[in-house]
């Protein structure tokens, strides 16, 4: 009996003492990347969803409960993108540090004006998000705001390293500000052009760089492409001479290729999350890749 108690207390001690670094859990890889930018080597970041999978449908696997149980900080979108899998994890994690309202909870959408907020929420329109389109991190200006919130959270919880987080954030901000000049210039020649996407994930990206991404292979968000809808899309693409179809790693590329071959357009692999495309292990590289791929395809 005594032995068991000893072992138990040893285990408990392990559980409580491993706090040299801030334990950060990010629901999605974009938040994870921003957390690494800001936290540097002062934080340990665990990302739940994979960069290549559909962020709407992630399994609430038990190992996530373990990560969230140990988290000092949880970064989630806060705009219902993860509503299909985050709530049961939060219920089971029983971690008061990451409750909404605590400094350990960063809701990335806080302070972001979401676009496409439906005035009338009906699921007849497909998988619409009542709070607005949740795919906002691909706008670098919004990414800066998220990084800033993350820095605030880290600094509050780990005041000793506040200066480090501050400096890291500033560095990230400066990088983004400088990069925005490059990205803006690279896409400037294509301002106002129409681009087709498989799913409505790019409204913020389009808004930032002056593109129109309003035509989708999905007839409605989350509804698989139907032949009749694709016929319509092909007609639109021909009429508007649209040259590019954006697909994400988890989309059915063959459908996009069919449409491309019918219209002479190019299929461009796009990803919302760092790591979703080769050579994009952080946020800046991801946007670099997106911009250069898109610019090359639109030429």
């Amino acid at each position: 009996m005594k032995k068991i108690l000893l072992i138990l207390s040893a285990i408990l001690a392990c559980g409580f003492s491993a706090h040299a670094k801030l334990n950060v859990v990010a629901t999605l890889p974009d938040f994870g990347s921003l957390a690494r930018e800001v936290g540097g080597d002062k934080v340990e970041v665990v990302t739940l969803a994979k960069a290549t999978e559909d962020p709407h449908f992630v399994d609430a696997r038990p190992s996530f409960v373990v990560s969230m149980r140990n988290a000092d900080v949880l970064i989630d979108g806060g705009a219902e993108l993860e509503i299909g899998w985050l709530p049961p994890l939060l219920q089971n994690a029983r971690n008061p540090k990451i409750e909404i309202g605590k400094p350990g909870r960063v809701e990335a959408s806080a302070g972001v004006r979401l676009m496409n907020v439906p005035t009338n929420v009906t699921r007849a329109a497909g998988d619409v998000h009542a709070l607005g389109n949740p795919h906002f991190t691909v706008d670098p200006i919004i990414a800066k705001a998220i990084a800033q919130h993350i820095a605030q959270s880290f600094s509050t919880l780990d005041a000793a390293n506040a200066a480090v987080y501050d400096a890291n954030y500033k560095k990230f901000e400066a990088t983004i500000n400088a990069k925005l000049q490059e990205w803006g210039a690279a896409l400037l020649p294509f301002k106002g052009l129409n681009v087709v996407a498989y799913h409505d994930s790019w409204v913020y990206f389009a808004h930032r760089f002056g593109l129109n991404i309003d035509i989708f292979l999905e007839p409605k968000p989350g509804i698989p492409p139907s032949p009749s809808h694709l016929t319509e899309v092909i007609a639109q693409m021909k009429a508007q001479k649209i040259k590019v179809i954006l697909v994400e790693p988890f989309h059915d590329r063959r459908i996009a290729e069919k449409v491309a071959s019918a219209t002479g357009a190019k299929v461009v692999d796009f990803a919302q999350f760092p790591g979703g495309l080769p050579g994009t292990d952080n946020y800046v590289k991801l946007i670099d890749t997106l911009v250069s791929r898109l610019a090359a395809a639109l030429k």
């Binding site: 806060g78 705009a79 219902e80 909404i100 309202g101 809701e107 959408s109 806080a110 302070g111 972001v112 004006r113 979401l114 907020v117 709070l131 607005g132 919130h149 605030q152």
Partner: peptide
């Protein structure tokens, strides 16, 4: 910062 997603929109 603190509201439950309410600051969103």
């Amino acid at each position: 910062i603190s509201s439950s997603g309410a600051g969103a929109s």
